[in-house]
């Protein structure tokens, strides 16, 4: 039996159930709004969004693997490529590109030109420190955590802060080897 070829982001996106984009965008907006009210500090909101994203990411990875038939990436370059081309397409309907690789291939940028989360959004003066889309960095970190890659994901550019693009820096900290989980071997 030949292995099933991985499916493209477009093919999966065409096959999944979708919701109205405005409902999605406004729901996310309502969550951020509520967090701002509850937590008051912009820094705290950033943290909370990242944590929420992480919790989503550790589940999303299984859906991603189940639907995309992606089995295994040879290196971190391939991993980030799959996130940008298949992952973003599958769940957000947009494609991202990967650039700015460092010399040893452990750090790069994922660049988003189009980001459905920020339609209708403008940052007011009292929210200047807010990373409005911080949930995305959490999702990537959580998903990669589940496939044993510890990463650090930070925003380098943000359209809401006056940049021309969204740029997420993904830095691979380490691969975690698989170990026998039980201590006592009786």
């Amino acid at each position: 039996m030949p292995p099933v070829a991985p499916r493209s982001g477009d093919a999966i996106f065409a096959n999944v159930e979708r919701v109205n984009a405005e409902l999605f965008t406004l729901t996310y907006g309502a969550i951020v709004r509520q967090l701002l009210t509850d937590l008051e500090e912009v820094e705290e909101v950033n943290k909370q969004l990242d944590q929420m994203g992480y919790n989503i990411g550790i589940r999303l990875i299984d859906e991603f693997l189940a639907k995309s038939n992606v089995s295994r990436c040879n290196d971190f370059k391939e991993t980030t490529d799959v996130i940008a081309k298949v992952g973003f397409k599958m769940f957000l309907g947009v494609t991202a590109s990967v650039t700015n690789w460092d010399a040893d291939g452990t750090c790069c940028s994922i660049v988003l030109e189009d980001n459905p989360l920020v339609d209708f959004v403008e940052l007011p003066d009292n929210c200047q420190g807010l990373y409005y889309c911080n949930i995305l960095s959490g999702v990537i970190r959580g998903a990669l955590d589940m496939v044993s890659m510890k990463t650090e994901v930070t925003w380098l550019r943000d359209v809401l802060r006056g940049d021309d693009l969204f740029e997420l820096q993904v830095k691979l900290l380490k691969h975690v080897p698989e170990e026998y989980p039980y201590k006592d071997d009786e």
């Binding site: 990875i61 299984d62 693997l65 189940a66 992606v70 089995s71 295994r72 589940m146 496939v147 044993s148 698989e178």
Partner: peptide, 11 residues
């Protein structure tokens, strides 16, 4: 017969 599969996420 034992059949086995493992996802990259360790399931």
């Amino acid at each position: 017969k034992l059949s086995f599969m493992e996802s990259p996420s360790g399931i």
